[in-house]
Design a protein around this nucleic acid. Sequence first.
DNA 1: GTCAACGCTTACGTAAACGTCAACTTCAAA
DNA 2: TTTGAAGTTGACGTTTACGTAAGCGTTGAC
Lengths: 159, 159
Amino acid sequence: MADLRRPERTFTIRQLCNEFKATPRALRFYEDKGLLNPAREGLNRVYSHKDRVRLQLILRGKRVGLSLSEIRELLDLYDENDEGAAQMARSLKKFRERANALEQQREDIDNALIELREACNRLEKRLAEIRPDLLPRAADYEQVLRARLDGHAEATLGK
Amino acid sequence: MADLRRPERTFTIRQLCNEFKATPRALRFYEDKGLLNPAREGLNRVYSHKDRVRLQLILRGKRVGLSLSEIRELLDLYDENDEGAAQMARSLKKFRERANALEQQREDIDNALIELREACNRLEKRLAEIRPDLLPRAADYEQVLRARLDGHAEATLGK
DNA sequence: GTCAACGCTTACGTAAACGTCAACTTCAAA
DNA sequence: TTTGAAGTTGACGTTTACGTAAGCGTTGAC
């Protein structure tokens, strides 16, 4: 009867949370920060399709490591100027900046990895000389592989 | 007269700060957290060569993204068991874990970069159709290159 | 009739690594 | 003698993105 995709369809907070794997607290927090502005039915929040889209944009922004305030700026731009052009240019700029920052981060990580590998090699050599029995073998991989199944991007990109 | 490299030479807090580009507040903080334990001359801190080495290790640890508490654990191991073997094994393990984490981070970053580039491409295409004059050109590089001259690793690896 | 599930608001807690006062002492140079 | 530089110990502030209650109202299921 009610097509789920009808634009006039609305969502409860929990529906959006389930769909996007967020928590109610998070959505309220975004609202508090001015990223969302759902309608009210009495006290209860009622999310429209536009709100849903905004939430999607928020989460995408987070995925690429933008801060909430940066995301808010972008969303504000979309609102002010809805015909879309100047704000697209600004978004593009923001995204490029973010990409550059990420590339810098990759460089930093690569440098850290170099330093780490040197330290590992030194330790391995000395351990092999002195106490080869204590050499921790690469059996650590199991742990690592298990841990890898979760949401690492959030931690990595600064949450 | 006094050879600067003589092992009995001591250092003031500011000397070490200048040498390693840290702040007094930071060294006191490390001390507060149990990473350093300089002698006192009255109230003033007097850093020995061993303290200097410890500080170097602390900063190296930070450079590769270890937390202060992880660094403290490693330093504690060096102290307990000064003949060095089991603790080297543990350090090695820690370093390998850290290296794995960093590799994971690189992957996360690469994924974010993919998502970003897609978004950039979409925006560029639409902008080129609608308002090609608004296309932000790659003149941003100047800003980026300037910013690149500073300590990015700290930000990148979580400070 | 009542209990659980969901919703709300307000407000404090968390983690990390310091920065930033305030309020002082101590020392050496001018 | 004064003043300026450097040192000290607290203690609170900062940032980000929420988590975690506390305490209350509403509603559907049984």
